[in-house]
Design a protein around this nucleic acid. Structure first.
Length: 444
RNA sequence: GUGGCUAUAGCUCAGUUUGGUUAGAGCGCCAGGUUGUGGCCCUGGAGGUCGAGGGUUCGAGUCCCUCUAGCCACCCCA
């Protein structure tokens, strides 16, 4: 067997490319209208950056990173997520010194060494959206509006925005402690995984899918009972503004996120159509990360969209399958040269999608290809057309055919002596022809 | 990282249970039926180291082992 791609790394082939282009173009347009500017950071970062931002004992850092020593022996990692690199750039270039908010977006590949499934690859792509240096509930709500609007523009319908607030360093410790105490009394009902979680990340017990754990979590304390006044006010305002903007959402006090740096507002967009990979977007506020990475206190919030998952959900659009506007069928050597030249001219001057057959195939074969390519018009260039100075233009969808005067093209070719074409002369002649064709195609 | 299912033509899949001549179908592709007219129809053709490697056997697509990849669930996440 020939060489295969690396596990979990997928090719996007030409038929799928328009889907990606549509998603990316729509995202750029929406993001820019919301005032976001693009930032591009490197794939490789120092390993330490991720260990410190994502959290030492998260799954990502413990077992999923592509980490290696480069040729100088430095520990580097292919980014498993975008936020850390963006915050690093924010600090490295002292962007915090200019007044916020800094609204940034990022689009690119991420790498996690997980077991691949549908909608889960080892190299996958995210659109990342970050608002740096703004603590206000407005930006949280704005991100909800943004993600809702973007998904609507992409044509997704069966999605649900779920939000929660995880509190802050003032109030979360008390909640965590209460949670641990509560589950200590429920130990008998918890699965082995949750017993482990109880020790190092008790919040995760809340969204375990095992029945026993779900039952045990039913009567657990809720973060909402522990929010400090500031967190409560903040989250209430986020919800009020999101609601006012007409974005529907659901508050789920058991929504927990895996990365250590989250504070206050967190959210996910879920779909029912991807099995276990039900999150198409997720994110939240990370008010303490910049400081934790050695910078000044700068509250931030952001989220990421999974492009592969979006690509699986975005409905097909007819404009993705557009064939050439014109296909030139030529018969014989001289007509084929003229066709070649015409092709280039129409592309350069009229930005027209034009194709032709380069081989000396039968008319039938050329027409079959024009049909398969989805060409709207076919131009016939053969001996008859050249000698009569009348080109034939066929409208494929209707099966109708028209005669178009060729001006002096035919004469020129009849008088053509050497094998070399005088491009200057030909170009002038072809202009008339081009106009005739364009006029015909426009009115058709 | 754990467990399960799967891998046969470019694509979707039969054939594997009961090992036995040249491994099939549909779609797609190419050509012809039309000396210069597509789609529909008809006819013909090309295309397969049966995922890879090893083993059992007189004989393996079929049985056994290993590996690789995909899918599903878990873990976790976009």
């Amino acid at each position: 067997m020939a060489i295969q791609s690396v596990r979990g790394m997928k090719d996007v082939l030409p038929p799928e490319a328009p889907r990606w282009q549509f998603i990316e173009a729509t995202a750029r347009e929406v993001l820019e209208s919301f005032g976001f500017a693009q930032i591009r950071t490197p794939v490789l970062e120092r390993t330490e950056l991720f260990a410190r931002s994502i959290g030492e004992d998260t799954d990502i850092v413990e077992k999923e990173m592509y980490t290696f020593a480069d040729r100088s022996g430095e520990a580097v990692t292919m980014r498993p997520e975008a936020t850390a690199g963006i915050v690093r750039a924010f600090l490295e270039h002292s962007l915090y010194a200019t007044p916020g908010p800094h609204k940034l977006y990022f689009l690119g590949p991420m790498f996690r060494h997980e077991r691949p499934q549908k909608g889960r690859l080892r190299q996958f792509h995210q659109i990342d959206v970050e608002v740096l240096d703004d603590a206000g509930p407005q930006v949280d709500a704005e991100l909800h509006v943004l993600v809702d609007h973007l998904l609507t523009r992409l044509g997704l319908s069966n999605v649900k925005l779920v939000i929660n607030s995880l509190g802050c360093p003032q109030c979360r410790p008390a909640f965590k402690q209460a949670l641990v105490e509560y589950f200590q009394g429920q130990k008998a009902r918890l699965c082995p995984d949750c017993l482990r979680r109880l020790a190092h990340n008790p919040l995760r017990v809340l969204d375990c899918k095992v029945e026993g754990c779900k039952a045990a979590a039913k009567g657990s304390p809720l973060i909402s009972q522990f929010w400090c006044p500031d967190c409560r006010t903040h989250f209430d305002e986020v919800r009020r503004l999101t609601e006012m903007a007409g974005v529907s959402f659901e508050t789920n006090p058991r929504l927990v996120r895996g990365l250590d740096y989250y504070t206050r507002t967190t959210f996910e967009v879920k779909t029912g159509e991807l099995g276990a990979q039900d999150a198409v977007a997720g994110g939240g506020r990370y008010d303490n990360l910049v400081e934790a990475l050695g910078g000044p206190a700068r509250p931030c919030t952001g989220f990421a969209l999974g492009l592969e998952r979006l690509a699986l959900l975005v409905p097909e659009r007819p404009e993705w399958r557009q064939g050439p506007e014109l296909f030139i069928v030529s018969l014989g050597e001289a007509p084929r040269r003229l066709a070649f030249y015409l092709c280039q001219e129409l592309r350069k001057r009229r930005h027209m999608r034009v194709e032709m057959s380069n081989e000396d195939k039968s008319l039938k074969a050329q027409l079959r290809r024009a049909n398969k390519d989805g060409a709207r018009w076919v131009l016939f260039l053969g001996g008859e057309e050249l000698s009569s100075s009348q080109a034939q233009l066929k409208q494929m969808s209707q099966g109708r055919q028209f005669e178009v005067a060729m001006g002096r093209v035919g004469d020129f070719f009849k008088n053509l002596e050497g094998p070399e074409m005088d491009n200057k002369v030909l170009a002038g002649i072809i202009d008339d022809f081009v106009d005739a064709i364009c006029a015909k195609i426009k009115t058709g």
